[in-house]
Design a protein around this nucleic acid. Sequence first.
DNA 1: TTGAAAGCGTTACCAA
DNA 2: TTGGTAACGCTTTCAA
Lengths: 359, 359
Amino acid sequence: MTASPRHGGHGNPATVPRVRLVDVAREAGLSKTTVSAALNGTGRLSPAVRERARETARRLGYRPNATARLLRAGHARLIGYTVGEYVAGRWSYMESPYFAQLTSTTAAAALRHGYALVLLPAGAASGEWTDLPLDAAIIADPVADDPLVDDFIAARIPIFTDRSVEGRQGAHWVDIDTDAAVRDVLDHLHAEGARNIAIVSLDTTTRFHTAAAHACRTWCAEREVRHHLTLSAEPGNGSVVEAVERALAAAEDADALFVIAEATPPLVLDAARRAGRSVPDDLLLVCVSEDTSAAHTSPAITTLSLNPEGVAEAGLDLLVAAVESGDQQPTGRVVPTRLEVRDSSRRADGGPDTARRPV
Amino acid sequence: MTASPRHGGHGNPATVPRVRLVDVAREAGLSKTTVSAALNGTGRLSPAVRERARETARRLGYRPNATARLLRAGHARLIGYTVGEYVAGRWSYMESPYFAQLTSTTAAAALRHGYALVLLPAGAASGEWTDLPLDAAIIADPVADDPLVDDFIAARIPIFTDRSVEGRQGAHWVDIDTDAAVRDVLDHLHAEGARNIAIVSLDTTTRFHTAAAHACRTWCAEREVRHHLTLSAEPGNGSVVEAVERALAAAEDADALFVIAEATPPLVLDAARRAGRSVPDDLLLVCVSEDTSAAHTSPAITTLSLNPEGVAEAGLDLLVAAVESGDQQPTGRVVPTRLEVRDSSRRADGGPDTARRPV
DNA sequence: TTGAAAGCGTTACCAA
DNA sequence: TTGGTAACGCTTTCAA
């Protein structure tokens, strides 16, 4: 019996053939079964045999073929990760501190549960992931009726995203209470004396931005507080800072600025200064941001954190429960946001320190 | 013949069994082979049969099992991605704009070549990836003698990283010319009149930081320019800004500041202001950064971009060539960095616009 | 305590 | 033009 020519493992056609389980078995004078059991610490083997198998495997530099094990196991412990739509480009979501943190904390949570994350571009077409052995998919910030969602559901791959998919089979969700978060910011601003609020948001159909804008309008109507909404055409510092400038120019008598669109916080502070406003004396400032630079400006900037860590943690708990039980029943969870009150939104004569107020 | 009980695909034990190729074949009254050929567009099949197979597959909601295809194909088109060491935490590298961009542009380049990226934490132990079917691994910024490198090489998984692995089998590299980049910055500063340069770097053994510090010392010695090096204990705005403050306090007569450690650029500008310096009038400023906020301050901040896009592109070209040829021969490439000269480093009476000077 | 054989779901070869 | 069968590399039952 001659050894048939084989290609190397994992895509190295012209390489020295990889050593397989059967090679170790032959070399050690044992069977595949025995070597497998020895290496995996299963079965009832004599210590001598187990050690011989292990030694041989070590000597030959044996590495089990991950794909083969996966086929056997019936799962890949791989989770697809993507963003529904990000108007600035298919990958530029990583440049947003929010998504960067969501991505890294999701990857961390996944790994703790024994899963690894596969990075997909925003709005990935199904051709870009059908060849991947995914156990589940996470879709951050899908747009309304996102085709991605349907693609994954059709492929019977359970998805984890926000509440926009509520009630659909195999669609699980984790969400923040945008309405409460926004109201909390506005209540805070109002308590500090704001009566005319300039708001800068983003011109997208993302659930967060539409919900936030809606919450602002409702709150302002209820309280009879004046407000002025300005939209940035796209995410990114350039466009958002420009929108802030427009907002400040248009709402000359605004006494507070609430920037919902993500921008580097110190830049927003600079824009306010350039517009001749002094923060917090004649303009209170709150930014929605995960950027740590907000804590290092003077005055430090109050931020509303959307709590990507919490979203990631909760999402993975749900995911693991769903994937490992095989249960199709949609599950969901609301995680709190965090308002970090700093000097930029406190009147100089300031009240008590109200930092880290969970919503 | 009864259908044997099967568990669902990809980790759904308690689920309705997934439909397999053989199910489609049986339903359509064809063989597995025929259906496979029909679906893959291979073989010579009559249009009628091909359509029947396809229609049946569609009707049954058939999705090929990715793992099984992979086992057959012998590769997974999956690339591991990790960072050698990042002192602030295993995942916090994503909060650095440099790594965020490197990660996203690498993922983009990979996908263009038909590969997907699997995200691993900094300093991943081999237990965290041996079960993954990786065709190759990318290790960004390994530390000297990184054990990660040896682990991957031992597992016969080709790696792509920087020049620190030059010459080792299966170790390919892409690097920037740190020395030239640093000298270019210093030459620029010198040409603008700097004679006493404060430098802020990071206290790590990362190749970039050690090489950059070395280049600074050498250049300053050659030119007999005074300099003062301050180290930040860790990455992140807090620590780096504090180091900038120390640097400015210690080097009172410095006429230029070169911040090599990554910090949000507007924060550095603020720190200079708080220290009573006016940029660029009595302090020229250059930051190593990929952060877009540098372009939006006033004055706009000159940055040295380490060109993560270029690194990613070159790395993937090499990777694909190596993986698909199976060639063990180490390959390598140097990519240019980019000095974006803006107002923060131009004397007010300024010379010609020298923006986008490739090194 | 050890080993033979079946099976995971797919694709490729070759015979009909 | 179509289909049977082997093979990818591993784990697991079951029999010796």
